[in-house]
Amino acid sequence: MTAPILDVRAISIAFGGLKAVTDFSLSLPAGALQGLIGPNGAGKTTVFNLLTGVYRPQTGEIHLDGRRVDGLKPNRIAAAGLARTFQNIRLFGDLTVLDNVRVACHVRAETGLAAAIFRTRAHYGEEAAIRERALSLLEIFGLSHRAGEYARNLPYGDQRRLEIARALATGPKVLLLDEPAAGMNPQEKRALADLIALVRRQFGLTVLLIEHDMGLVMNICEAITVIDHGVTIARGTPAEVQADPAVIEAYLGAPDEPPPASAPAPAPDSAKADP
């Protein structure tokens, strides 16, 4: 077995007294497609925020392709090859679809401000290469015909796909998808699963995804990590995880024991929103 491309060692963070994530570890082999699941408020998005440098882990280490990245600013981590999408879509609404993707290509650009102002030959070459790359990504995601539209005007499903296309434009080694199928209908979800498989093959990506749709996760992920209250409670193949009593308890609230008559089992939705 080769060294993992993303190696997360016991990272934790607490906000005030609230332990949002405790000793989270994860080892993603190159080319893997894994899932991160858990009830609402379990700390999944917080894990992504820790990995991408939005929050700085208070303990532990994060290694990306052999390089330590915890404590770096988010832009440095993106440059190192870790890209993400956002649960609550964060597109550049008043830029065109093409420009959204072109912004993300900028991290791989080599010419600078002076070249842009004086329009050197290298600048023209690079602009053309960025454009070509952005258009080819839009092609893959079926967004070519919308290239000139403002991102805020896209339908919801297209916005989700554009987020993934934009993340890919940064040229990542590892892609983190935060609920990419949220709000999609079953057909769109199936198409999305195919798309994820396709880009993974084509770009040699490693993918970690957060998803609420269990069907999707169980279908496409090779391994799954389950967290609840910031603590890892299970890890394994979809089948193993599905059968794990701790997981069932986290989601359904201990169905094997008779629930106390006065207090019905809490639905996952009643838990606190992700911090």
């Binding site: 988010p74 832009n75 993106a78 440059a79 890209a83 830029l95 993300a104 991290v107 434009a169």
Partner: peptide
């Protein structure tokens, strides 16, 4: 475009390596 992306969404701009 890097300038403009900050106006549009600073957190996303950072996550895209700006």
């Amino acid at each position: 475009r890097a300038f403009l992306s900050i106006r549009e969404n600073e957190i996303a701009a950072e996550a895209m390596g700006i």
